[in-house]
Amino acid sequence: MEKEQYFGVNVSPLNYEEIIQDLKTRIALREKSTIIAVNPEKVMAAEKNAELMELINSSTYQIPDGVGILLASKLKKGSIRSRVTGVDMMDRLLKFAADEGHGVFLYGAKEEVVQKAAENIKAKYPAIHISGTQNGYEKDAGKVVEKINAAKPDLLFVAMGSPRQELWIREHMNHLHPVVFQGVGGSFDVFAGHVQRAPEFYRKLGLEWLYRLMKEPSRLKRQMALPKFLMRVLFSK
């Protein structure tokens, strides 16, 4: 797949369905695949952090999570036509796993959060096989790897916050049974019902950032990355 690039950071142009179709082939071949969410804030951080840029660019799919990436693609007449959010990508993968009989493992967050998330996912997708769960407070990475491998899942979701979760995946991926890896940040809290997403009206318009800003005005400094990013895209060659 030909990827778009913004200030050195790759972004995959595929939508949800195209990623799932691509993953079907890769899973059948037992090829390891990683998914990382990309937004303007992360792009600008990667410009100043070579390790973060390498981490993003070495992933299989760099999904256009932020509305800023979508707008940038339109400004540059790129091929990205829709956002692919981290939490919705996880949800699509859970449905895919339930439909295709692939086991999933949830790693990260507090014990009560990961357990409630697993419970709610099972209620939403009764056919799903949740191979196991592990909270994010186990200090011995070796024990975590052993537990995941014993469960033999095909998909692993890691909720530690970015880029810590992606660094953990990269370090241990080649020693793990799963073939699909996604760092999902606070998505377990969403599935557990502890965090409410923006209403559908805001999500459809790509205005989740505005809803979060209204709820948490302290996010203003972080949100300023969006206009700065778009201005730079507009005036870049």
Score class of each variant (00 low, 15 high):
K3V: 14
Q5S: 15
Q5V: 15
Y6I: 11
F7R: 01
V11T: 08
S12V: 09
P13S: 09
E18V: 00
I19C: 06
Q21A: 15
D22T: 08
L23S: 00
L23Q: 02
T25Q: 13
T25V: 11
T25D: 14
I27Y: 03
A28T: 09
A28I: 05
S33Y: 00
I35K: 04
I36S: 09
A46M: 08
A46K: 06
E47N: 09
E47H: 03
L55V: 02
N57H: 08
S58T: 14
Q62A: 03
Q62L: 05
Q62T: 06
D65Y: 02
D65T: 03
G68A: 06
G68P: 14
G68S: 06
I69T: 10
I69W: 09
L70H: 11
L70C: 07
K76I: 02
S79E: 15
I80Y: 05
I80M: 06
S82H: 13
M90C: 02
D91L: 08
D91Q: 10
L93N: 05
L94Y: 08
A97M: 06
A97Y: 04
D99Q: 13
V104K: 06
V104P: 02
G108A: 03
A109Q: 12
V114H: 01
V114L: 01
Q115R: 14
K116N: 12
N120E: 14
I121F: 09
K122N: 08
A123E: 13
Y125N: 03
P126C: 06
I128D: 07
S131G: 05
G132Q: 05
T133C: 01
G136D: 01
Y137G: 04
Y137A: 08
G142M: 06
K143N: 13
K143I: 04
V145M: 07
K147A: 13
A150E: 11
A151D: 03
D154N: 13
L155N: 03
L156T: 00
A159W: 01
G161V: 00
P163K: 04
E166C: 00
E166K: 00
L167G: 05
I169L: 02
R170G: 05
R170Y: 09
H175P: 00
V179F: 11
F181W: 04
F181L: 08
G185D: 09
F191Q: 14
Q196G: 07
A198W: 07
A198F: 07
Y202Q: 06
Y202I: 03
K204H: 12
G206L: 08
E208D: 08
W209V: 02
L210F: 15
L213Q: 11
K215D: 10
K215C: 07
K215L: 15
R222A: 13
A225S: 15
P227I: 00
K228D: 07
M231I: 14
V233C: 00
L234Q: 10
F235I: 09
S236D: 14
